[in-house]
C-alpha cells in the first residue's frame, strides 16, 4: 500500500465518518480536554471508572480524520480494561506511530489489534500529534482527579 492509501485506509475513514463511543457521559468520574493549539483539534474525553477499571468511555469534539479516527479506535480499545493495561497500550501505540520508518524493524502491529491501522501515520511526521492527541488526553485523565486539560504543546510531546 502506498503511504497515502495506508494512512487513509477504509477502517480509518470509517471511524472518522462513524466515530464509536462518540457521546458525552453525564456525571463522568473523569473529564479531560485534549487540544492541539497548532491546528485547533479539540476533544473532550469522559471516563467512568470502577476502581482501576475503565467501565465506560466517551468522547466528543472535532478535528481531522486522523485525530478523530484515533480517538474512536482508542475508546474501543480501552473500554473494559484496567488503567495499567490502558497505559501499556498507550506506550505500544506511541512506539508504533513514532517508530523510525527507515529502519527495517517490522512494526509490532499484531498485538495492537485495530489500532495497528494507524501504523501508516509514522510516515507522516506532521500527523503524529493528530494520532496521539486522544491518547495523551486519556493518559492525563487517568492520572488526574476529576477535570484536566491536556495540550499537545505542553511539553512538546508527540
Amino acid at each position: 500500500m502506498s503511504g497515502l492509501n495506508e494512512l487513509y485506509q477504509e477502517l480509518i475513514l470509517d471511524h472518522n465518518r462513524n466515530p464509536r463511543n462518540f457521546k458525552k457521559i453525564e456525571n463522568a468520574d473523569k473529564l479531560v480536554e485534549g487540544y492541539n493549539p497548532l491546528c485547533g483539534d479539540h476533544y473532550t474525553i469522559y471516563l467512568n471508572m470502577d476502581g482501576d477499571l475503565i467501565k465506560d468511555i466517551g468522547f466528543q469534539g472535532a478535528g481531522c480524520a486522523i485525530s478523530k479516527a484515533s480517538a474512536s479506535m482508542m475508546t474501543t480499545a480501552v473500554k473494559g480494561v484496567t488503567k495499567k493495561e490502558a497505559e501499556e497500550l498507550f506506550t505500544k501505540f506511541h512506539a508504533l506511530v513514532t517508530r523510525d520508518v527507515h529502519d527495517n524493524n517490522e512494526a509490532n502491529i499484531e498485538e495492537l489489534g485495530c489500532l495497528g491501522a494507524l501504523a501508516g501515520v509514522a510516515e507522516f511526521p506532521a500527523r503524529i500529534k493528530c494520532a496521539s492527541l486522544a491518547w495523551h488526553a486519556l493518559h492525563g485523565a487517568l492520572n488526574s482527579e476529576g477535570k484536566a486539560v491536556v495540550s499537545t504543546e505542553d511539553s512538546k510531546k508527540d
Binding site: G3, L7, G63, A65, R127
Partner: peptide, 19 residues
C-alpha cells in the same frame, strides 16, 4: 478537515498551509 487536505496535497508536491 484542512489537515487531511494538506497531507494529501503534500503527497502531490503541493505546499499549502492548513490550520
Amino acid at each position: 478537515h484542512a489537515h487531511d487536505v494538506g497531507t494529501i496535497l503534500d503527497q502531490e508536491g503541493i505546499a499549502v498551509r492548513t490550520g
